[in-house]
Design a protein around this nucleic acid. Structure first.
Length: 156
DNA sequence: GCCAACGTTGGC
DNA sequence: GCCAACGTTGGC
């Protein structure tokens, strides 16, 4: 299957670029998704080698801050089975896990963040899921959108 | 911190 | 199956 592209949102207060940078092998388990639409994408669509735009949500301003890649495809989110975890889900069973995670590896920090306002006003990005519909923490990005966003993130 | 948008839950 | 109540996300 051709390499595909995704945008993953993370709250920098919980897990931001500095955390990813410090992670072993600059790789992290991207867990804690508790939305079914996002879950379906993690479970069924994200493949090893796919490109990831790492996005800081709930920031001022929200922005794409780095490029990463998927290094492990969808697998059951371990947090759902840990009673002490804030992501614990008593309804989820090991035989039929409800929530999924992927592993991503940081590839390159952008020279400068590409902010949401900037994305909104850039020609060619009008159809991004980020712009059309908010509140989805895993979303597909077209190859064209991928190129435009990364170009905006380069130092000029 | 507020609150709009959106998804899920659950009473009927 | 409808829809009001409720919870979560995430921009501001």
């Amino acid at each position: 299957m051709a390499r595909r592209y995704w945008l993953l949102k993370s709250d920098p207060d919980t897990f931001g670029l500095p955390h990813l940078r410090r992670s072993k092998n600059r790789t992290t388990c991207w867990d804690g998704v508790r939305n079914y639409q996002a879950r379906n994408l993690l479970r069924d669509q994200l493949q090893v080698g796919d490109g990831v735009l790492f996005y800081h949500s709930r920031a001022a301003p929200p922005a794409v801050v780095a490029r990463a890649k998927v290094v492990r495809a969808g697998y059951p989110d371990p947090e759902q089975f840990r009673p002490s975890s804030e992501y614990f889900d008593a309804q989820s069973e090991r035989g039929a896990p409800r929530w999924f995670a992927v592993d991503i590896q940081l590839e390159r920090e952008l020279d400068r963040p590409v902010t949401l306002p900037q994305i909104r006003e850039t020609a060619g990005l009008e159809e991004m899921v980020l712009v059309k519909r908010g509140r989805l923490s895993v979303q597909p990005v077209t190859p064209t959108e991928w190129k435009i966003v990364l170009a905006l993130g380069k130092r000029r």
